Amino acid sequence: MPTATEVDSTAEAAARRFRLAQTRGQQLLDEVDEWHSKSPPKVSFDLAPDGMGWMAVVHGYDPAPPLDAWGLQLGEVANHYRSVLNTTLTRIWNAEGLPRSNRLQYPVCVTRAQWSRASRVLAPLPERLVRLIYAGQPFVMSRAHGALPRDDVLAVLAWTDNQQKHQVELTASTSPVMNNFVAHAEFEESARVVDVRDISHSIQKREDGKVVILADTRPHRVKTLSTADLWLTTEITFADESGAWTEVRALLWEFLQRSRSVVQELLVVWSDESFDVDRIGGSVDFVSGAAFGKAAVDSLHGSGRWSKDFFNSGRFGEHRASAALEVGLSGVVDGRLSAEDH
């Protein structure tokens, strides 16, 4: 079992890398916010071709967002979060007195075959750590959250880190804030004020790449559109391996929370030989005769235990090893990088 000094020094090293990742991430968000405040989208309004509605066409931005540069910055941040997982595992490996391994890294496996290969490298580690790492793999976690393994946050993080060697794709996506939309239109049968409660909206992308925000007034034909008060918001979004788009601020928050959780779990289980790994969702796949996945956890520990395992409980944060990382992270300026922002 590691000494308190070894646990603390490993936590402090992880905290330094987290602080660097958070600083770089906040710099990226500050640049995005500054651009957004000075670069409103160029929009024109026109009646729909059939007269039953109107279009707000976003032609672009002035100046255009530096998406390539921001993609590089996002890749760098992902690299820092990915690296903190690797360096934490390496420090644990070295503290256990294990021989140097050039193949050692924190595995991120979306298939059982990938895990089979990775587990051979991890085999010299204490079994409780191997079971913990297994339980956090995307192909295991997918049984809890229901998404595809490659859509798990850890898998997206690893993919983004790898993608930085090529190109991280970002785009500017403009959409209306519907609560603030009011239009003054004259219809063929009457004149009245129409707001979002009367009109359905959809966002389309034309072949020329211009964004079209369409107000559909069917079955009412618009005679004239005198004024339209439309509040637009522009988000910088990231395309993952599945082609799903995520707003960059939300993505960075997810990277931070998941990687921090992984490191805390490693520190807790490593520092406590008596820790009951069966309490972790997914780890009971190792128990002889146990059912597979969620059924195994629930059969051993009661219904609903899969989603309410130790690492989702308040007691986890009270563990000394978990608190050691939080002490190292105290004072980090990440107030704007929070779930409240999105």
Rank of each mutant, 00 (worst) to 15 (best):
W253F: 14
L85F: 00
D46G: 15
Q73V: 00
L98K: 11
W35P: 04
L256F: 13
L85T: 06
H166R: 10
Y106I: 01
N94E: 13
S303A: 15
A291C: 03
E34W: 07
A144M: 10
G25E: 02
Q257P: 07
R16G: 09
V121G: 00
W270K: 06
D30L: 07
I213L: 14
V177A: 11
L98E: 14
L251N: 01
E207D: 15
A323F: 12
Q22C: 10
R206M: 14
R131P: 07
P99E: 14
D152P: 00
Y81M: 02
L74R: 08
M55A: 08
R320Q: 15
T88D: 07
T224I: 08
L72S: 11
F310N: 01
V287H: 11
P149G: 02
E6R: 07
L98I: 11
V297W: 01
V110C: 10
F286H: 15
G281S: 09
M178S: 10
L67E: 03
R100P: 06
S119K: 12
V156Q: 04
T160C: 10
T87E: 03
L170I: 02
L170Y: 02
L225T: 07
V194R: 07
T217G: 06
P66L: 06
A244T: 04
A323M: 10
Q73G: 05
S9A: 13
Q204Y: 15
G282S: 09
H166F: 08
H145N: 15
D8N: 15
V327M: 10
A172V: 08
L251V: 03
G75C: 07
V194Q: 14
S39D: 06
S307R: 06
R24F: 03
A147V: 02
S9P: 02
K42G: 04
D161M: 05
L89E: 02
S119Q: 11
R112A: 15
V297E: 06
H59D: 10
A64N: 14
R19T: 05
L225I: 11
S116G: 11
T160Y: 00
A13R: 12
V156F: 01
G25C: 03
G209L: 09
T227C: 01
S322H: 03
S37T: 15
E12I: 05
S173I: 02
V284C: 13
A158T: 05
T3N: 10
L232R: 03
W35T: 05
A291H: 09
L20S: 13
S202N: 15
V58T: 01
A14R: 06
F181S: 00
D198S: 08
F18S: 02
F255Y: 14
D216Q: 08
W93P: 04
L89Q: 02
T246W: 12
E273G: 01
T174V: 05
T234Q: 01
F310T: 03
V121L: 00
V333P: 09
E189I: 04
E127D: 13
F292T: 12
D152V: 00
L89V: 02
E76H: 08
A215L: 09
A123G: 03
H145D: 14
P41D: 04
T3I: 03
V268W: 00
G146V: 01
N94K: 06
A69R: 11
Q27T: 09
S261W: 12
T227I: 08
